[in-house]
Design a protein around this nucleic acid. Structure first.
Lengths: 249, 249
DNA sequence: CTTGACTCCGACGCAGCGTCATAGTTCAAG
DNA sequence: CTTGAACTATGACGCTGCGTCGGAGTCAAG
């Protein structure tokens, strides 16, 4: 039976010697040995190596590959499905990231723009991708607010108005959870959402401070909101709005 | 001036305390300190942090982010362009990977197929993606050949014929390097290429052995090939064929 | 026997933190 | 003032998939 030593085998197979050592140590691919300890690879080994490379290419961790190849049953189809889904999700993210960079580049064309404006574009996209981070935007605003001047002209009347707008919007969104996020109704809700965000956090710094504080300190939420069993905590609403906003890009 | 300690700041900004520690140690974001060493974050810090998060989101390494933010000039647009291209390339790869998994899943549906066949599908795609690995396919075949029976019916006449076919094909490809890889001519070349590969490596194991040996041992290439200043080493040819093959998928 | 080309194994490095472990700080309640 | 809970700081190891030494053994040729 013809056999190869690591170097030759590695070149033939298109991997590095180090990788073969590593697979050996992980018990993924353990060749025979000579009396003096040299590795000897044979035909069985190259087939197994090809399988390893193929699965690794799919982004499956080596540890899992080992289990897969040893229990040679139909785990594989399950793994493939799961991996494909993970890859597709990754691609969705990647697409949005690319869109973000394009947008940033476009914004930059004028040339004299400071980095800040460009980077904010990116941040917006980040926040749309993940509901948790989506929320963090308000926290970020909250920081600025706290640092500016706490509750300057944040009158109880204004607070009431803001609260009411958000409450209504949340109620409307909750009532529309089974709509298509790309559909008209959802897009209208997304537009309202955005206008609320911009209207209150973008214009008047004093009002910004007030809104931000409201978001930041859950304990300080007005009674009208607290009564609703923490309405802002309904993840479905955030999820829905996240999707709808994503379609607006 | 209002300031925050790590925990609060981290929650407000949507990152972890550990990350802030890490950014500090990398000199990316170094807040002020209290007398006893506690970190104190202020408004400047959150802006910088937002920029860091944005750039990190694009996949730019932290080290480079530090340099970018410190030299606050138009390096940024250059970086964005480069990063976008990298992301787009990544996306291309991802697409092909997903296609590979889908194909593998499809092949698997019958159920009784051994893993080997499924994984080979994936390997084919891997090799199309990267010229270097594309070449490795022949090396892989070479291993099997060497392990089978060296040079069984690999007569000099046959060797001459094979050599001539490949030589012709290489010459034709080299002459067409400025064609569109998706165009008719290129696709015809790709078809010839594939038929050569399949015709000689797929059918007769004896011939397979011979061809494989030819590919594997550069030193043994027939004089007719060696004369050509290592024609198989012209990376442009491999690149072109790689692209053309990719369009065939 | 020497030389040069391989081989072995062990260990550190990288990126970006997560996760203890150990020790000091702060602040309010008792 | 003390006590305890809740923070904070630093340091070190872990993870992935190897790349890259470094010291030491092996093998075939000259």
């Amino acid at each position: 039976m013809t056999a190869f030593r690591v170097r030759e085998f590695a070149e033939l197979a298109g991997v590095t010697v180090r990788a073969l050592h590593y697979y050996d140590r992980l018990r993924l691919l353990c060749p025979r040995r000579t009396g003096s300890g040299y590795r000897l690879y044979s035909i069985r080994d190259i087939e197994r190596l090809e399988q390893i490379v193929a699965l690794k290419f799919l982004g499956i961790p080596l540890k899992q590959i080992g289990e897969l190849l040893d229990r040679d049953d139909r785990d594989l189809s399950e793994v493939l499905r799961a991996q494909r889904r993970a890859l597709e999700e990754k691609r969705r993210r990647l697409d949005q990231t690319i869109a973000a960079v394009r947008e940033a580049e476009r914004t930059m064309r004028p040339g004299q723009q400071p980095d800040a404006a460009v980077l904010k574009k990116i941040i917006e996209v980040i926040e749309m991708q993940d509901n948790a981070e989506f929320m963090s935007r308000y926290y970020a605003e909250a920081v600025r607010a706290k640092l500016a001047d706490r509750g300057a002209q944040w009158t109880p009347e204004l607070q009431e108005r803001v609260t009411q707008r958000w409450t209504e919007l949340f109620a409307d969104v909750e009532a529309s959870l089974d709509e298509d996020p790309a559909g008209e109704k959802a897009q209208a809700l997304a537009a309202r959402w955005q206008s609320l965000v911009e209207g209150f956090t973008g214009r008047d710094p004093q009002i910004t401070a007030g809104v931000a504080n409201m978001w930041a300190d859950r304990g300080n939420w007005p009674a009208s909101l607290q009564q609703q069993a923490r309405p802002f905590s309904n993840p479905k609403v955030w999820e829905f709005i996240g999707k709808a906003m994503a379609r607006r890009i």
